[in-house]
Nucleic acid binder design. Structure first.
Length: 584
RNA sequence: GGACGCGUAGCUCAGCUGGAUAGAGUACCUGGCUACGAACCAGGCGGUCGCAGGUUCGACUCCUGCCGCGUCCGCCA
C-alpha cells in the first residue's frame, strides 16, 4: 500500500488528460499543514512554467479530469496552483482493515510485480579490525548496516551479508610474535587474549622498545604471507578468539551477523596476484616508481594530472585497494550481486570512488551492478577531536553496552520495583541496548558526530524507550480488555482527528521502507516510528477505550487500531534491531 | 594547493524529486495522574537556516563566490 504512488498515478492521468506530456512529474507529497489536506500535488506549477501558461487555470483543468471517487472526500485548488487532497475516512478505514490482515502490514514484496524484481544485494558492514577490540567507532557501521539489511529482507530482497573483517596485514606480525612468546611461557591463548586492547598495547610497546622484537615481527609477516604452517596455526588461534569477542558484541547488540558471514581480508589473499596480473595485462595498471599504480584520468585535477591509485607496493606487497578490487570481482562473479552496499566511515570515500572506477574499467564490476558506498561521520570526543585508537581514551563497545544496561536497570527498578531479577535483567537489556542503537540510528549526519554518554543513554523524549513504552501501553490495554491479539477481524472506523492521523501514518510504512532501502538511511524509519508512537500517545489521551460509556463498536474499532499500531511498532523496531516487550 | 563532507533554536538533530507560516527532542516556564502505565500529554519561550550574490511565481533545498570546521589526496586500513 502506497498512497503517494496511488495518488501520483491518478494525478498524472488527470494531467495527461488535461493535455500535459506523459513525463510530467505530479509531485505528490504529504501536506505539512492540516488545512492543506492530507496530500498535495504541486506538479501543475512546474508544468505551467514549462508551457508558459497560467498555473491556476491549468490546475483547474487538471481538477476537471481528476477522479478520486471513493478515495478523497474533498479536493481543492489553492494558492498559485496547489491541489490539496483530503482523503476519505471510510476509504482510509478500508485500507487499514486490509493491511491489518497482511503479514507484511501492507508493504508489497519484491517479486510481486514484473517491474519490482528481487535483487541480490551484497551488504558489507561492521568489518572490525581483529587486532583490537571493538570500540564505539564500530557502532555505526554495524548497526546501520544491520538495519538496512533487515529492511531489504523485509521488502523481499535477497541479502548476502559480508563481514569484511581486518584479519590480515603487517600489524599481525607483532601480535603473533607476542602471542608466540606467551604460549612459550605456558599461557593459554584464551587467557592471553582475554583483553585484546591490552594485548595490542603490550605488543606495540615491545615493537617500539624491545631490541630485536621488531625484526621478529616482520619475520612473522613474511612467514604468514608465505603460508608457513606453524605461523598460520598461530594466526588462526588469534583470529578465532578475536572473532569470539566480536560475536559476543553482536549478540548483545542484537545484530544478525554470524560466523558464516565473515569474509575477511585474508580470504582474498590468493586472488591478489591475479587481480594485479589482469590490471597489467589490460593496460589499466602501470609500473611507476617501482610500484604498480592506476592513473585515473576521470579524477584528474585542473592541471590534468590524474588521480593515483596504488594497487601494489614497490616491495611487491598488496594493499587494501587490491583487496577491495578483488572483493568487487568475488561479489559479482561468485555471489551474483545486483547491488553492492558498503558501510564505512567517510574518510574512505575517495578510496571507494577510486575502487569503483577501476573495477568498472577492469570489468570486475559490470555496468548493471550497483555500487553504493554509504559513508558516515567519524566519532569525536567531547573536545571535538577525533578519538585516538591507541592511547586509551577509546570507549570499548562492550563497556558502553554494559553501562547502558545498568542505567536502564536503575530507571526500571525505580518505576516498577516488583520485577524479579530475571525479568528485570531481560527488560534492562532490551531498553538499554535499544536506547544506544536508536540514538545512533536516528541520525542521518554524514558529518562527524560527538560521542556523548548522556544522549546515548537517554530514556526520555525521542528515544527507543519511548517507542517501547508505547508498545507496552498497548499490550497493557489488551490485557485489561481481555482482547484477543490474534483477532484481526474487527472493523476499524475513523471518527476522531487523532484516529485519522494514525490511519495516514500507518499507511505510509511502505513509502518509508522504500526510502530506507534505496538510500540506506534507517533514520527515516526512526523518524517514522517516533511520529507513529507520538500520534498514538495523543490518541491515548484523547480517545478512551475502556472507559465507561464507550460503545462496543468504538471500543472494538479502537482496539483493532491499537493492534495494527502495535504490530507496526514491533515490526518497525525489529527492522532496526530493537526489541519490544509486553511490560517494561 | 586540490577533492569531498558539514555549517538550521542555548544544546542534540529532522527537513523527501525546489513549495504555502522552517519542524522535533532537550533545557527553561505553565497546566494535567480515583479512564486504559506521568518513561506520558496539552501549552509557552526560543531562528538574519554561516555570509554575499544568482536562477524563478516561489530557495534551508539548485548554481557561483567567500568565511569557518573536518577528512582525504603514491607505497597504513
Amino acid at each position: 500500500m502506497n498512497i503517494k504512488q496511488l495518488l501520483s498515478e491518478k494525478v498524472l492521468a488527470a494531467m495527461i488528460a488535461a493535455g500535459l506530456p506523459e513525463d510530467t512529474n505530479p509531485a505528490v507529497s504529504i501536506s505539512n499543514r492540516a488545512n492543506f489536506g492530507d496530500y498535495q500535488a504541486n506538479g501543475v506549477m512546474g508544468a505551467a512554467k514549462k508551457l508558459k501558461t497560467n498555473p491556476r487555470e491549468l490546475a483547474s483543468k487538471v481538477l476537471e479530469h481528476l477522479d478520486l471517487n471513493g478515495i478523497a472526500d474533498n479536493i481543492e485548488l489553492a494558492g498559485p496552483g496547489f491541489i490539496n487532497i483530503h482523503l476519505d475516512k471510510a476509504w482510509l478505514a478500508q485500507q487499514l482493515t486490509k493491511i491489518s490482515k497482511d503479514e507484511y502490514l501492507g508493504v508489497s514484496q519484491r517479486g510481486s510485480s514484473a517491474n519490482d524484481k528481487v535483487q541480490t544485494v551484497v551488504v558489507d558492514y561492521s568489518a572490525p579490525n581483529l587486532a583490537k577490540e571493538m570500540h564505539v567507532g564500530h557502532l555505526r557501521s554495524t548497526i546501520i548496516g544491520d538495519a538496512v539489511v533487515r529492511a531489504l529482507e523485509f521488502r523481499g530482497d535477497k541479502v548476502i551479508r559480508q563481514n569484511h573483517m581486518g584479519d590480515w596485514g603487517t600489524q599481525f606480525g607483532m601480535l603473533l610474535a607476542h602471542l608466540s612468546d606467551k604460549l612459550q611461557a605456558n599461557e593459554v591463548a584464551e587467557t592471553a587474549l582475554a583483553d585484546l586492547e591490552n594485548f595490542y598495547r603490550e605488543a606495540k610497546v615491545r615493537f617500539d622498545e624491545e631490541e630485536g622484537f621488531a625484526d621478529r615481527a616482520r619475520d612473522y609477516v613474511v612467514k604468514l604471507q608465505g603460508g608457513d604452517a606453524d605461523c598460520a596455526k598461530l594466526w588462526q588461534q588469534f583470529i578465532d578468539i578475536s572473532i569470539t569477542h566480536s560475536e559476543e558484541i553482536y549478540q548483545k547488540l542484537n545484530v544478525t551477523l554470524s560466523r558464516d558471514d565473515i569474509m575477511g581480508e585474508s580470504a582474498y589473499n590468493p586472488d591478489l596476484p591475479v587481480v594485479i596480473d589482469e590490471l597489467m595485462t589490460k593496460g589499466i595498471a602501470v609500473e611507476d616508481q617501482g610500484a604498480k599504480v592506476v592513473f585515473i584520468d576521470e579524477m584528474a585535477n585542473k592541471d590534468g594530472e590524474p588521480s593515483v591509485f596504488i594497487v601494489q607496493k614497490s616491495g611487491g606487497g598488496y594493499l587494501y585497494a587490491t583487496t577491495d578490487l578483488s572483493a568487487c570481482r568475488y561479489r559479482t562473479d561468485k555471489l551474483n550481486a545486483d547491488r553492492i552496499v558498503i558501510f564505512t566511515d567517510a574518510r574512505q570515500a575517495l578510496h571507494f570512488k577510486q575502487v569503483e572506477l577501476v573495477a568498472r574499467k577492469a570489468g570486475f564490476l559490470p555496468e548493471n551492478v550497483g555500487y553504493d558506498h554509504c559513508p558516515f561521520g567519524m566519532m569525536m570526543g567531547d573536545d571535538g577531536k577525533p578519538f585516538k585508537t591507541r592511547t586509551g581514551g577509546t570507549i570499548k563497545l562492550a563497556e558502553l553496552l554494559d553501562e547502558a544496561i545498568v542505567r536502564a536497570k536503575e530507571v526500571i527498578s525505580e518505576k516498577n520495583p516488583d520485577y524479579d531479577q530475571e525479568t528485570l535483567n531481560e527488560i534492562s537489556r532490551k531498553v538499554g541496548i535499544g536506547a544506544v542503537k536508536f540514538a545512533d540510528l536516528s541520525k542521518n549526519r554524514t558529518s562527524d558526530y560527538i560521542f556523548n554518554w548522556k544522549t546515548m543513554l537517554s530514556f526520555e523524549g525521542a528515544t527507543a524507550p519511548y517507542l517501547q513504552y508505547a508498545y507496552s501501553r498497548i499490550q497493557s490495554i489488551f490485557t485489561k480488555a481481555d482482547f484477543n491479539r490474534n483477532d484481526d477481524g474487527n472493523i476499524i472506523t475513523i471518527i476522531e482527528p487523532q484516529e485519522k492521523a494514525l490511519a495516514l501514518k500507518l499507511l505510509q510504512l511502505e513509502d518509508v521502507i522504500d526510502a530506507v532501502v534505496s538510500e540506506c538511511t534507517p533514520n527515516l524509519l526512526c523518524n517514522y516510528l517516533y511520529e507513529l508512537a507520538s500520534l498514538y500517545m495523543s490518541f491515548y489521551e484523547a480517545c478512551p477505550i475502556l472507559k465507561e460509556g464507550i460503545s462496543s463498536e468504538t471500543k472494538q474499532s479502537r482496539l483493532a487500531l491499537c493492534l495494527l499500531i502495535s504490530k507496526t511498532l514491533k515490526q518497525g523496531l525489529d527492522v532496526l534491531g530493537i526489541d519490544v516487550m509486553d511490560r517494561m
